[in-house]
Design a protein around this nucleic acid. Structure first.
Ligand SMILES: NC(=O)c1ccc[n+]([C@@H]2O[C@H](COP(=O)([O-])OP(=O)(O)OC[C@H]3O[C@@H](n4cnc5c(N)ncnc54)[C@H](O)[C@@H]3O)[C@@H](O)[C@H]2O)c1
Ligand SMILES: NC(=O)c1ccc[n+]([C@@H]2O[C@H](COP(=O)([O-])OP(=O)(O)OC[C@H]3O[C@@H](n4cnc5c(N)ncnc54)[C@H](O)[C@@H]3O)[C@@H](O)[C@H]2O)c1
Lengths: 233, 233
DNA sequence: CGCGATTTGTGCACTCGTTCACAAGCGCAT
DNA sequence: ATGCGCTTGTGAACGAGTGCACAAATCGCG
């Protein structure tokens, strides 16, 4: 029943330190962060909303409004201080601590994720790998030993893991989610094509490649129809 | 500059055959499709909006409204005919033809995608693999030979490929996108963490795992703040 | 020190999406 | 045939998100 967005019990409408942002804004902050890192690397130490918006692929008015939600960070007539804004966004996203992640299901996709360098640069540390297959348990992947799923609970506590990634087949995903939640994980990223049911207070996000392709397919279909339609006109 | 959503030139507001759906609805149809397949496999040949909504992880009113956009497909007092609805949604999404996909960048992630069985069941066929690395070119992966990126244009035409998937490092993604577009691809799924600039008429969708984790991180941070806040209260 | 060029922050109008609540429609049992 | 219970389809109210357009603020320069 319960799924995705879950407000806390008290549902703090906006603590002093924490301006509780619109969800759409939250979803774009990581993009801004990436764009800012790119600009910083390119030597800019200041960036206008126009420049930053272009780098992040959004409209500049939207970017300014988004940033205004985290307080005034820019200087009129000048733009935003790149380093300062990076720190600001990282603070808001809770990326000042390196977050430990558990990866469950070390198959095709799990292997790729385990070997992905892009996590470390973006605030995450894969702390442990799990699988149910005894063939895999004990194997070393990218410096980490695959552990049996039955060790998950202990490891989650030990390594202070709050985020779990599910890369198992769909039929196993709910069971894995239950284990994760029971072990104390409160955020899940699910690659299996299925709906997960989790208690309130646990956040779930889903990545489904086939869904993305199907959305593209729809637009392909529409474009083709528009074309043949134009011909018959 | 131009990016994502691009209406056709004539911008058909809604052809007779094609009710041009709200984008939010389009994004959910694949979920409904998956849920329907699951129900069909479980032996149901009819499903109420309530049941289907639960299986797809949405609210039933939303589901009914979404489906009403593709015409009346249900029977009052009974529900939806599962098989009929599957066909209907597949038709709307343009999944009645098996769509050919080109995969570019056969590294860590590309390997996983190339070996993914989940595409075939959901309307897609990986028609060709490309990489710039001569070491990889010629290698056989899951029954497909990796070709050099310079062969892309010819292959796209030959195999009638309209969708490209980019799984190269970010610094190569724009160049690859340009090649894809020049070759005639009109839809791109981008796994590289960067913004792509494409001409109008080309659709781009992006999957960024780190972004998903960062959004989860935000909510983790918020949950933690709410908790410590409650303690000090 | 004042002025013009520039860029932020935001009020406002608008579009898009969600949810409620219920009338209309359907099948079944009697 | 008629009525009853169930479920769809949808009008209407609401809420979230977007984009425009401009006033307020800052800087550099003369
Ligand atoms: N391979 C891809 O590129 C890709 C792309 C998109 C989505 N996915 C999805 O990701 C998931 C994994 O895909 P894959 O190709 O890696 O599959 P896979 O079969 O290669 O790997 C699945 C792994 O999960 C393990 N597993 C099974 N049950 C388990 C359990 N109860 N606890 C712990 N581990 C368990 C298996 O031992 C196996 O190692 C699937 O749901 C798939 O649909 C994969
Ligand atoms: N590995 C993951 O799990 C993962 C997860 C999320 C996102 N990503 C993203 O996906 C992309 C690929 O990741 P990866 O881990 O597979 O990297 P990788 O380095 O293992 O593979 C990249 C491949 O792209 C090829 N390539 C480079 N330039 C090319 C060009 N111009 N034309 C064609 N091919 C070219 C390389 O030869 C290599 O084979 C990256 O952008 C990464 O950020 C990866």
């Amino acid at each position: 029943m319960s799924q995705q967005r879950t407000g806390g019990p008290g549902n703090t409408p906006g603590s002093p330190d924490f301006p509780d942002l619109p969800e759409a804004t939250v979803a774009r902050l990581p993009e801004y962060l990436r764009a800012l890192h790119a600009l910083a690397e390119a030597g800019h130490d200041t960036a206008s909303s126009e420049a930053l918006a272009a780098a992040a692929g959004v409209n500049s008015a939207k970017l300014r409004k988004d940033l205004s939600h985290l307080g005034s960070n820019g200087t009129r007539g000048v733009g935003y201080n790149v380093d300062r804004l990076i720190r600001q966004i990282e603070h808001v996203l809770g990326l000042t601590v390196l977050r430990a992640v558990a990866l469950v299901g070390i198959g095709n996709l799990g292997h790729a994720l385990a070997g992905y360098a892009g996590f470390a640069n973006r605030g995450f540390h894969i702390a442990a790998l799990f699988d149910a297959d005894q063939e895999l348990v004990g194997r070393l992947i990218n410096g980490l030993t695959v552990r049996h799923i039955s060790d998950l609970a202990a490891t989650v506590v030990e390594e202070k893991i709050a985020i779990g990634v599910i890369a198992t087949p769909a039929h196993a995903a709910q069971a894995v989610a239950d284990i994760l939640v029971t072990s104390g994980v409160t955020s899940i990223l699910n690659f299996a094509p299925c709906v997960l049911s989790v208690p309130e207070g646990v956040d779930v996000r889903k990545v489904d490649v086939a869904v993305e392709l199907q959305i593209l397919s729809f637009h392909e279909h529409r474009k083709a129809a528009a074309l043949t339609g134009a011909v018959t006109l």
